[in-house]
Design a protein around this nucleic acid. Structure first.
Lengths: 327, 327
DNA sequence: ATGAAAGCGCTAACAG
DNA sequence: CTGTTAGCGCTTTCAT
């Protein structure tokens, strides 16, 4: 069944010791040209493949980084995961993905397994919090857009600024009744700053903030039902600042059911502005997160911790608005 | 730095042997209640974490499955990867992702590393082919929508049927000049059957097939330039059957530049029909691949090979058309 | 320039 | 019911 060729077999074939074979494999130490040639011949002849696991056991590192996100099937997390993978790959790491689906049990289960020396570090963008494992002092972790605990650096975009941009755009468009959708309130996340900004801007303009709670991992049908409720509760709504771009698009679909034309009767601003969204829904006006930079900074911080045990501070990156036609 | 607690430490703390501690850990063999309690106490006290790597070395398996796709940042592969991850997780496997970016070098490099016993199996949806490693007889592999070699089962949707559905729809819409975009011709892939179907259907209707070559991993700008060329070369075009949904949306954007209104002046049918696409671009008419079923079948086949060394045959699954407003 | 031997942390025969 | 012992495949002092 399996390829049982091990270094010892190569060594025997080449008539040298295991040690020498290992040295050839790793280009380490003094070796005569002939020995190198002999060993390499033997490796080819036997179709030798080093066993990564054995190597990892000795070195106590896996060169694996775990990615824990609610789902990877989303323009934002998809692009983020993709860019992280590329960067990490260039730096010699491979990537283990875990989609928590915002299920705390699954997230914890992932964590448990990954903590068991399976990965050298973790990048977490899931939306749960307070899992005790995150306090594990031995595993380098970087959080994305999520405060986990004081030891763990957070890389996020400027959510407050994003909230200001979005809300201000709707005001500039002349909207009088602006509604916001956002995730659950039950944990502290930089994402909440969008809500804060929205509230602040409206207050400055003597308008009343109305926020509907949605959850990232709800089914589309459940989300739509929530959005329908918005139009039922507030038929006068003329501006919506959505928690993300998929929600924004769902809102636009639902608006059509209520015979609200976008942008004539209703303006909509989304959030995230991933590359895929600007292809599939180019008309959507949205706050664009600097996804590539988030990935770059997150990997830098993680590597500093893994390789030099350097602790980094949290980082906030600027956002900008993508001008579509929906607001 | 690292948590150096090992099973031996636990054993000493509990006053038993390593073996006994191991048995408690694995709930195996006969153990007295007191021993179990003692050992568990010790584990908690020392905050013991089993070392997965050591375990893997002994068992010669990692419970890891490698996913090799061109990119995960795409509605189709994103959803596929997501569903595969969920299914595999339920079955005790974790997932290592590799985005080949359609770069044969990167794909080969991935393969090289993964073949070194790092994963128990591989699911490959990349668009390259003919890499010699794929002939490695020892690693269970399943291909998605791609013929790799005779030993490797392929799970694909019915590309021919999809091609027929798409082309027929455009004909039914009254299109007279129908153009198709498709990936490179230089390797045999079930995807080519779409082109075949397109050609067959047009031939039956005495129309001339015109196919433009695109590549999945081109930049959006490069793709757009290709699509602009379509309108320059064939201003009379009134129907396009695109290789995938992102291309379809890009084509619609480019059509606007040429003052072609969709669907009035031009009908467009996409391909893939991932869930995310139907949210972000609900108006797009597209051929819907059975993504969940692809994932289910692929994992079944892979597990049969990994766990029972059973060889499976290739499987083709039916597609259907999603009715939007673009055709 | 090369080899012998120890050990990374865990599991499983085999005894008792 | 529990302990002793021998590896899993590799890397690395320490000799030579």
């Amino acid at each position: 069944m399996k390829n049982n060729i091990k270094l010892d077999d190569v060594a025997k074939e080449a008539g040298v010791s295991k040690t020498t074979a290992s040295r050839v494999l790793n280009h380490r130490g003094y070796l005569s040209k002939e020995t190198i040639a002999k060993v390499q011949q033997a490796m080819i002849k036997l179709n030798y493949r080093p066993n990564t696991i054995a190597r990892q056991l000795y070195k106590q590192q896996t060169k694996l980084v775990g990615l824990i996100f609610p789902t990877i099937n989303n323009p934002f997390f998809g692009q983020l995961a993709n860019e992280l993978e590329q960067l990490l790959y260039q730096q010699g790491y491979k990537v283990l993905v875990g989609n928590s689906g915002n299920d705390p049990a699954k997230e914890e289960s992932y964590l448990h397994q990954l903590l068991e020396r399976q990965v050298d570090g973790l990048i977490v963008g899931a939306h749960n919090q307070g899992l005790p494992e995150y306090h594990h002092p031995n595993l380098p972790i970087v959080a994305i857009d999520q405060k986990m605990n004081d030891d763990i650096p957070v890389v996020s975009s400027d959510n407050y600024q994003g909230g200001v941009l979005a809300t201000q755009r709707l005001l500039d468009d002349g909207c009088k009744c602006i509604i916001h959708t956002n995730g659950p309130l039950n944990f502290i996340s930089p994402t909440q700053n969008r809500r804060l900004a929205y509230q602040d801007v409206l207050a400055k303009n003597k308008l009343t903030p109305i926020t509907y709670r949605t959850d990232f991992c709800w089914s589309n049908e459940k989300k739509k039902e929530t959005f329908r409720q918005i139009f039922r509760d507030h038929p006068e709504v003329d501006g919506i600042f959505a928690a993300n771009d998929t929600d924004a698009c769902l809102i636009i679909s639902v608006a059509a059911e209520f015979h609200k034309q976008v942008p004539t009767d209703l303006k909509v601003v989304g959030y995230d502005g991933a590359a895929m969204t600007t292809v599939l829904a180019p008309q959507l006006t949205t706050i664009q997160q600097p996804i590539s930079q988030l990935a770059t900074v997150a990997t830098q911080i993680l590597r500093a911790k893994i390789e030099k045990n350097e602790n980094s501070k949290s980082v906030t990156l600027p956002v900008k608005i993508h001008n579509g036609t929906t607001a």
